[in-house]
Design a protein around this nucleic acid. Structure first.
Length: 549
DNA sequence: TTCGCACAAT
């Protein structure tokens, strides 16, 4: 081709370069670039853009920047495309400062230029910066809105993410599959069923049912909103399911405590010839953790390594330690940790610590706490853990020492909170919270409930006091755990017999768990509580977790 | 003839 007198390169090069990128073929990329230079076609505007784009896609940002830098200003000025390629490359690489500099001097900007920078800011967690830029955009398209919904949600601001979705619709911008999947994910993360249902309706009305990402997001949304049967229905109706879909379903069964269903689903997946990955193994292992199936979990762990050649990650190791730990087999948990080929991280020591606390093994707890503090001296978790541990053992002096150390180092604790969605509105409560407008009513309701519960044999459990607060007045504080406030608010805000759904950011304490059980009985209500690990469905005085959590 | 932006599980 290069020897031909026709020199068709000008038209052919962009396509050839695109292919080199698609094939992830660096040597082809370099020789094409050399060939283009030889016939001076690398000066062509179209070819330059394709070259830069190819290098970005292959991960050679330096080469893309070189192409850009060597382009004369006169050529750079009507070519927004070349600027966008480089801008996006910098954002993806995490170099937002340089992206911003480039953005500021661009001769012309398209919506995509703005979108790229907004995405870059969101990716590094600069929510305020992203929102400011977004609000100042001269024009927004569906990608702009989707970027915000997804980015806010991934950074934990799910309420604002759903609000963005609603605002998009108010602005009469039509969402697509990407937008809907992102919005559903935000609803899932915060357990907002009413919002999730609304997005589901929108998806149906717009014909997004066939989309795989939307389907998976729906399964996940229903599962995380406590509606595991609905998740299962959506799952059954799906025509195509990839490994992510199966994982969402298996994880759903796992967090709701249906281990048989989780195992069956895993078998069905293998029969459907979907190749298991590390994530789906994590989901089935989670089913074992929540149901105390230790031997089954170990069997799966071995199968993963030997039958599927999947290398365990720290999360898998944590699952196994959790599995032993919750079952009270602490020595085996510790031995497993010692035999691991990698050093245990903070989360893993945390799992061991929780197990030690639950099974009252102070010596091992001290070992775990030492490591927690060593790995993250500024993290409050280690201190809170240790202080709680000593309190449980009635070693008040030691507990006090830890708390003083904590104050000296001005370590802040992450507070416990719970929320409840009432008619599409989310109400959040902190431990001992009195800021809600109906606070008096809520506290009165709670007092009455506790009195009636005591008649039914409920006894406040003092050991849970320091779970997420540091109040001295124990009995009082116990009644103020955030999930209890959410429950009381739920009881006065919904009709008799209506189900109550609460989401909590920490593991539910033993005392609240007991009260919820009794409350479900005396109020004749199903109470669905999602804590940071799993679901508890309280019904007629019994919890679906079988008191194993 | 070139580009660009956003989605689902752990």
């Amino acid at each position: 081709m290069f020897n031909s007198s026709l020199r068709p390169g000008r038209l052919a090069f962009p396509f050839a370069l695109k292919s080199a990128a698609a094939l992830s073929h660096p040597s082809l990329a370099f020789s094409l670039h050399a060939a283009a230079s030889k016939v001076s076609l690398d000066l062509d505007s179209f070819v330059r853009t394709s070259l830069a784009d190819m290098y970005v896609k292959l991960g050679f940002l330096d080469c893309a920047l070189k192409v850009f830098d060597e382009t004369p200003d006169s050529h750079r000025a009507g070519n927004v495309l070349l600027w966008n390629v480089v801008l996006n490359g910098l954002c993806r690489d995490g170099d937002v400062e340089r992206a911003r500099e480039l953005f500021d001097v661009m001769p012309e900007r398209s919506v995509a230029s703005w979108n790229s920078l907004v995405h870059g800011l969101l990716k590094r967690g600069d929510l305020d910066g992203a929102v400011e830029l977004f609000e100042g955009m001269p024009e927004r398209n569906v990608v702009s809105w989707t970027t915000m919904v997804a980015g806010l949600s991934r950074n934990g601001d799910n309420q604002r993410a759903v609000w963005m979705f609603d605002r998009m619709l108010e602005n009469e911008v039509r969402g697509n599959e990407f937008t809907v999947a992102a919005a559903l994910s935000a609803c899932a993360r915060m357990g907002a069923l009413e919002s999730g249902l609304r997005v589901h309706e929108y998806a149906l009305a717009n014909g997004f049912r066939e989309n795989g990402a939307v389907g998976t997001a729906l399964v996940d949304m229903y599962s995380k909103c406590g509606k595991i049967e609905c998740a299962s229905e959506v799952f059954d109706r799906m025509e195509r399911r990839d490994v992510l879909t199966w994982t969402a379903m298996i994880m759903g069964w796992a967090i709701h405590g249906h281990w048989r269903k989780a195992f069956q689903c895993f078998e069905d997946m293998k029969c459907a010839r979907v190749k298991p990955d590390d994530g789906v193994f994590l989901a089935v292992l989670m089913a074992c953790v929540h149901s105390g199936k230790v031997e089954k979990g170990l069997e799966l762990f071995d199968s993963m390594r030997f039958d599927y050649q999947i290398e365990p990650t720290m999360k898998h190791y944590t699952c196994i330690v959790d599995l032993f730990g919750r079952a009270g087999r602490l020595q085996e948990a510790l031995e497993f940790m010692k035999a691991m080929p990698v050093e245990p991280d903070f989360v893993l020591w945390g799992a061991l610590f929780s197990a030690c606390r639950a099974h009252k093994n102070i010596e091992m707890a001290e070992l775990a706490a030492e490591n927690l503090l060593r790995l993250k001296p500024s993290h409050s978790g280690g201190y809170v853990f240790l202080s709680n541990m000593y309190s449980s053992a009635r070693r008040w002096d030691d507990a006090e020492k830890v708390r003083i150390t904590m104050k000296d180092q001005s370590v802040g604790k992450s507070p416990g909170w719970s929320y409840i969605e009432i008619r599409g509105q989310t109400h959040c409560f902190y431990a001992g919270d009195r800021s809600h407008p109906q606070s008096n009513e809520i506290h009165n309701k709670l007092e009455g409930l506790v009195l009636r519960a005591k008649e039914q044999g409920y006894e406040p459990d003092r050991e849970c006091v320091l779970h997420d607060i540091e109040d001295e007045d124990k009995e009082d504080s116990l009644e103020c755990h955030s999930e209890k406030l959410a429950l009381a608010f739920g009881l006065i805000s919904t009709a008799d017999g209506e189900e109550i759904r609460i989401v909590k950011n920490l593991k539910v304490c033993g005392d609240c768990h007991s009260l919820m059980k009794v409350a479900s009985l005396i109020c004749g209500r199903e109470i669905v509580l999602r804590d940071n690990k799993r679901f508890h469905h309280f019904n007629s005085g019994v919890c679906s977790c079988g008191d194993y959590w």
